[in-house]
C-alpha cells in the first residue's frame, strides 16, 4: 500500500472516531425522544427502541404553550436578524466603497466589541429597558439582538460588497443615480447571497440566545423556546427524560435544519470572513 493510501486510511480512521463523538449526542437524543417511559430505563441496551413511539412529540406539541414558544423564538430571532442586517448595510457599504480615515479602526472596533459578554451589557440595559417601560416587550429583545448581531453582519456584508465590481456602480452613477439609489438597485441585489448568509447566521445565533430573553421577558407566554426548555427541564422529574429529549429535539431541529440546508452558502461567507479577518 502506498504512503498516500495509508494516509487516506488514517484520515478515515481519525474522522470515523471523531464522527462517533459528534454524532452520538444527536443519535441519543433521537433515541430517547422516541422511547416509551419503560424503555428509557433500558439505557444503552435499546439504542433502537423495541416499540418506537411519537407520543412524546405529540405530548409536547399538543401543549399550546410550546407552539407559542416556538413562534416567539421564530419571531424574535427573525426580527432581530433583520434589524442587525439593516443596521449593518450602510456601515458595510461605507467600509467597502468609501475611502475615509479611520476605516481600519472602525472595522477593528466592530471586531473588539464582539469580545464583550452580553452579560456585561445586560446589567445596565436591563435598568434602561425598565426605565423606558420596555421590559416584557418583544421590542427590547429585538433591539438587543439587532445590536449584538450588527458587528458580524457589517464584516460579512463588507466582504460581500467588496466582491461586486465597482464598475457596475459607476455605470449607474453616471446615469445620474444617487448613491443610496445605486446601493438599493445595483449593489444589494448583487450581494443577496452575502446578505442572506449574514441574516441566517444572525437568526441562528438569536435562536440560541438564552440570557437576553430570560432577563428581559418575565412572562411565560413571551418566552422563546430556548428559555422555555430550560424552565421545562427544571420543572420535571427524572422519570420524564423522554419528554425532555423530545422538547430538546424540537428546540434544536429548526436551527440545525436551516443551517445544514444553507451551510454551503453560509460556510463560504464565513471562510471569506476568516481569510480577510
Amino acid at each position: 500500500m502506498s504512503r498516500a493510501r495509508l494516509g487516506d486510511l488514517a484520515s478515515y480512521l481519525l474522522l470515523g472516531v471523531l464522527a462517533v463523538f459528534f454524532a452520538v449526542p444527536f443519535a441519543w437524543l433521537v433515541s430517547l425522544a422516541i422511547r416509551t417511559p419503560a424503555e428509557v430505563y433500558r439505557g444503552a441496551a435499546r439504542f433502537i427502541p423495541e416499540a418506537p413511539t411519537l407520543d412524546n412529540f405529540r405530548t409536547i406539541l399538543s401543549d399550546p404553550a410550546f407552539l407559542i414558544y416556538l413562534w416567539n423564538g421564530l419571531k424574535l430571532s427573525t426580527a432581530g436578524a433583520a434589524l442587525a442586517v439593516a443596521l449593518a448595510i450602510p456601515a458595510a457599504y461605507a467600509c467597502s466603497r468609501i475611502d475615509f480615515r479611520g476605516k481600519a479602526a472602525v472595522l477593528l472596533g466592530l471586531l473588539a466589541v464582539q469580545m464583550i459578554s452580553p452579560l456585561v451589557l445586560l446589567v445596565p440595559l436591563y435598568r434602561w429597558m425598565s426605565a423606558l417601560g420596555l421590559l416584557n416587550r418583544d421590542l427590547s429583545v429585538i433591539a438587543v439582538y439587532g445590536a449584538l448581531g450588527m458587528p458580524l453582519a457589517v464584516w460579512l456584508l463588507k466582504i460581500a460588497f467588496d466582491a461586486i465590481p465597482k464598475e457596475l456602480e459607476e455605470a449607474a452613477s453616471m446615469d445620474g443615480a444617487s448613491r443610496p439609489r445605486t446601493l438599493a438597485l445595483i449593489t444589494l441585489p448583487l450581494a443577496r447571497s452575502g446578505i442572506a448568509s449574514a441574516f441566517i447566521l444572525a437568526m441562528v445565533m438569536n435562536w440560541s440566545q438564552f440570557l437576553i430573553p430570560f432577563i428581559l421577558l418575565e412572562r411565560d407566554a413571551d418566552w422563546p423556546i430556548s428559555v422555555a426548555i430550560f424552565n421545562f427541564a427544571g420543572s420535571i422529574s427524572a422519570s420524564t427524560t423522554q419528554l425532555l429529549a423530545a422538547a430538546c429535539l424540537i428546540a434544536v431541529l429548526p436551527a440545525v435544519a436551516v443551517f445544514v440546508a444553507l451551510q454551503r452558502m453560509i460556510v463560504t461567507a464565513l471562510i471569506a470572513g476568516a481569510v480577510k479577518g
Binding site: 459528534f22 444527536f26 440566545q209 428546540a251 436551527a255
Partner: peptide, 15 residues
C-alpha cells in the same frame, strides 16, 4: 461538526 455548533447552549447542556 457544524450541526453541533448551532445547537443552542441551553439545549447543549440539557443533552
Amino acid at each position: 461538526v457544524l450541526a453541533a455548533w448551532v445547537v443552542p447552549g441551553i439545549a447543549n447542556g440539557l443533552i
